[in-house]
Design a protein around this nucleic acid. Structure first.
Lengths: 183, 183, 183, 183
DNA sequence: AATGAATGAGCTTTCATTCAT
DNA sequence: AATGAATGAAAGCTCATTCAT
C-alpha cells in the first residue's frame, strides 16, 4: 500500500517535471516510465485513461506546489508589494534551478498540445485557484476588496508572460524586473 | 516557379495556423499536407530539413503578421496609450475570429515541444523584434527613449500572459481589460 | 464455499455469453471480469490456466444448455419431424432474444481463434455429444437405428450453417425455413 | 506501379490465408507483415484504415476464389446434382490441402471477432453473391426458377455447417457425404 | 480464498523521413 | 520539380498472467 502510493506519486511527479520541460506531446510515456523507473504495464493501474490522466495528476501536483510557493512568499510579507516581489524572486530562483527550459507547468502540461476540452477547463480552474489565492493574500495585506481580484489577475498575467519571455531568453532576469510594474 | 512559391507559402501558412492551435508536436506532417492539399512527397523539396524548417518558415510568417498588426495599431495612433489599447482590442478580435484554441503563434510553434536550441533562439530573436518595433512606435509617439524599451517589454509580457489566460478561459475578455495596467 | 461456486459459475456464464458474441480472441479477460463484477485477482483461483480453462468451462456450460434445448424440443414431440421443427423454432427465438451477434456458442468459443488442439478436440467431442443426443431422440421416435446418426448429423450440419447465415443476415428467419429440408 | 500492386495483393492474399486459419482477432499485423515479407510501415499506404481494410480486401479476394470454385464445379456439369457433388468434393480436397484448421474464409475473416457492423454487412453481401451464383447455375441446369434460390440457400447452409464440422473433426469426410442430402 | 499491484510482451497505428521514378 | 511508395522506430495502449499480502 505504501509502495503503491509511492509508485503513483513517482509517476505524477516525474510527468509533471517532463511535461513542464517539453510539453504534453513532447514527452513519450516510455520516457516518463524510464525516468520514474516504473515498468510499462504498471501505469494503467494507477491512471486508467493513461497519458491524459497522468497529465491531470501532474497538473494537480504542480498546482499544489505553486500554491505553496505563493503562500511562502505572501504569508511572512508585511504588505502586498513585498509579497509579490518575493514571489517573483522565488520563481526566478526556481527557474534557474530547474533549467532554462521550464515555463509554467500548467501551460506546458495542459495547453501545449492538441485541443482537449478537459485539459483547457482544468487549466482555467487551476489558474483561477491561483488568482483567488493571491487575491486572498492581497485582502489580508490591506488591499481593498474591490481591487484585490483585479490586482491578482494582473499579477498572474504578468507572471505568465514573464515566464514565457524568460524561457525564450534563457534567462530569469526579466522575472526580477517585473514587480516594479505591479506596485 | 510561381506555382512553387504558392505551394511553399501554402505549406508555411497552413503550418503556422495548425502549430498555433495544437503546438509543434501536436501536429503531424500528414495533417499539414492534407490541410494544404499538397502531396506527400513535395514537402522536402521546399523544406529540406522537413518539419523543423517548416516550423521556422511558419514562425517567420506569423511574426510578419504580428508586426503588421502592431503597425496597424500604432501608426494611426495619436499617442502610445491609444496605440496599445488598439493593439489589445485588435488581438482580442483576432482571438475571437481564430477560434478559442489559439495562443501566441510563436510560443505554439517554437516553445511547446521537446527542447530545441535553434527554436528557442529563434523565438527569442522574434520576440525581441516585436519589442523593438513597439519601442520604436513608443519613441515616435513621445515616450522618452530611456523608458521606451522597458515599456515595450512590459507590454509584450502583458500580452503574452493575457493570451495564455484568454486561452484557458476560452474568452478574449481579459485582453480588453489589460491596457489599463499599461498606461 | 457457496460464494465460491457462485463466483465460478458467474465467470463461466459471463464468459460463455461474451465468447459467443465476440469469439475467444475478441474478448479480453478484463471485459469478462468487469461484466461478471469479479475482482481481477480472483480468476486464477477458480481457473488455474486462466483464459483457456475459462473457455473450456464456458463451452461445457453452453453445451449443457444446448442439450437441454434439444431435450425440451424432442421429449414432448410425437415424432422426429415435429421435434426438429420445434428445435429450430426454439433456436430462432433464442437468436432473437440474445441479439443478432450470437452464433453457435461452441464455434465462437473454441473455433474462432488461433490454432489450439485442445479446443478443437473439445469442440469435436461436444458436437458428437449433440449428434448422439439427437440420434437417441430419433431412435426413440421411430427412426430406424441405421439411419438415425446420419439424420442427426444432417440436422447438426444444417443447424450450424443456418446459424452462420442467420448471423450474417441479422435475421433468424432462415432458421425457421430449414426444417423443411430435413424431413 | 507493378511493384505496388504486388505488395498490396501480397498483403491481401496473406491476410486471407491467415484470417481463414486463425480468425480476424487471432492474427496480428506483425504476423501478416512477416509472412508477406512486407515492412511494417508499408501497410497503411495500401490500406488506409489498417487491419479492418485489410480484412475487407482479404474477404473480397477469398470471395472471388470461391466464385471461381463454384463456376469450375457447375460449368462443366450435365445437371445440378452433379455440379453440387463436384463442388463438395472440390472443397473437401481444398480442405485437405490447406490444413485442418481452415473453415469458411468469410466467416473466419468477418464473423469471428468483436462486433463490427461493416464486417457483418459485407459477409451478408458476399454470402448472397455466392447463393445467387449457385442459383444461376441451378436455373441454367434445369432447376425451376421458383425453386432455384431455395435450393441454393440450402446448399449454402449445408456447406457452411459441413465446413464447421469438418474443422472440428479435422476431417473432410463429412463434406463428401453431404451432397446426398441435397438431391 | 481473495485481491489490487505489478509485469513486459504484444497490440494497432502514426511518425518524420528517404527513395525511385 | 514533383510524387506515391517505402521504411522502421516509436507512439499510446491492452494483454494474459504472476506476485505479495
Amino acid at each position: 500500500m505504501a509502495k503503491n502510493r509511492t509508485t503513483k506519486d513517482k509517476l505524477a511527479w516525474t510527468a509533471a517535471k517532463l511535461f513542464q520541460e517539453k510539453g504534453y506531446e513532447g514527452v513519450g510515456l516510455s520516457e516518463i516510465l524510464a525516468n520514474a523507473k516504473v515498468p510499462k504495464g504498471s501505469l494503467y493501474h494507477h491512471f486508467q485513461k493513461g497519458k491524459s490522466d497522468l497529465a491531470i495528476a501532474a497538473a494537480d501536483f504542480a498546482s499544489r506546489e505553486m500554491l505553496r510557493v505563493i503562500d511562502d512568499a505572501f504569508v511572512p510579507a508585511p504588505d502586498y508589494e513585498t509579497g509579490l516581489t518575493t514571489l517573483f524572486h522565488k520563481l526566478a530562483k526556481l527557474f534557474d534551478l530547474m533549467g532554462k527550459w521550464n515555463g509554467c507547468p500548467i501551460s506546458g502540461t495542459l495547453l501545449t498540445g492538441a485541443q482537449n476540452a478537459v485539459f483547457r477547463q482544468l487549466s482555467e480552474q487551476i489558474f483561477e485557484t491561483w488568482i483567488t489565492r493571491i487575491s486572498q493574500h492581497a485582502i489580508r495585506l490591506g488591499i481593498p476588496e474591490n481591487e484585490a481580484e483585479d490586482r491578482a489577475t494582473h499579477l498572474f498575467v504578468t507572471l505568465q508572460g514573464g515566464w514565457t519571455l524568460a524561457r525564450a531568453r534563457s534567462s530569469s532576469d526579466v522575472l526580477r524586473t517585473l514587480p516594479r510594474y505591479l506596485t
